[in-house]
Write a protein that binds this DNA or RNA. Structure first.
Lengths: 108, 108
DNA sequence: ATCACATATTGGCAATTCGCGATATGACGA
DNA sequence: TCGTCATATCGCGAATTGCCAATATGTGAT
């Protein structure tokens, strides 16, 4: 909770734009706005996010590619991963995304 | 003046994020917010923009690279090019950048 | 301990990007 | 017309990305 600076550093921005320069990764981020739109998603799961295989099925990509793309989104600070059992759930990092949008408004 | 849609299409977003996924190109866009910060820039020139060689000198890149990067920014709809004599002046497309930021706020 | 399952990591290859030097285009002046 | 200057385009090798199959890691059930 809470971030060092208000604005993103050059390095952070690089990771963000590289992450979002791929349509599949951008899609994933948009899909995660509405976790309930994934089949078999329970209302109780919304807070923790969506598991990799559900995202993979929707993306139509391979398992390894999906996992890698989610890692890239996580390293860019756009999503948060939570491991529970054998599943890893991903959800948007809304606070950081909001901070990003503020940075973009300042910088551009 | 004026654009077809309020929000950017998938193709437009791809061009934008690819363009901004390079630090040098992002720098150029930020520099162009203040054309007067370029040496030898006259107040009368502000509206038309900054010529390629001035941007090149500041970026420390080769001439061809600078020209290509500005073309990429132009194709992404982020800057506007104006040819006057042997010079090409580049300035920010503020209207389109504002439209982009609205799209980002909607989509992300 | 062993198995099955979800996810992460590795290795690979085709396609793209990075940045450059060389060259082409286009505008102006002599 | 010829030469010069500003910019654009071309062609290149090195580095990175896109996506995959294969393999490794970790977790829960038996």
């Amino acid at each position: 909770m809470g971030y060092d600076r208000l604005v993103f550093s050059e390095t952070e921005l690089l990771a963000v734009f590289r992450a979002l320069s791929n349509p599949a990764r951008r899609q994933m981020l948009v899909w995660l706005k509405d976790p309930m739109s994934f089949p078999g998603q329970e209302p109780a799961d919304v807070e923790i996010g969506v598991c990799v295989s559900d995202i993979q099925q929707r993306a139509g990509l391979g398992q390894s590619t999906t996992s890698q793309y989610l890692t890239i989104l996580r390293q860019a600070g756009l999503v948060i991963a939570t491991r529970r059992g054998k599943w890893t759930y991903y959800r948007r990092d809304e606070a950081n995304i909001a901070r990003l949008l503020e940075t973009l408004r300042d910088v551009f």
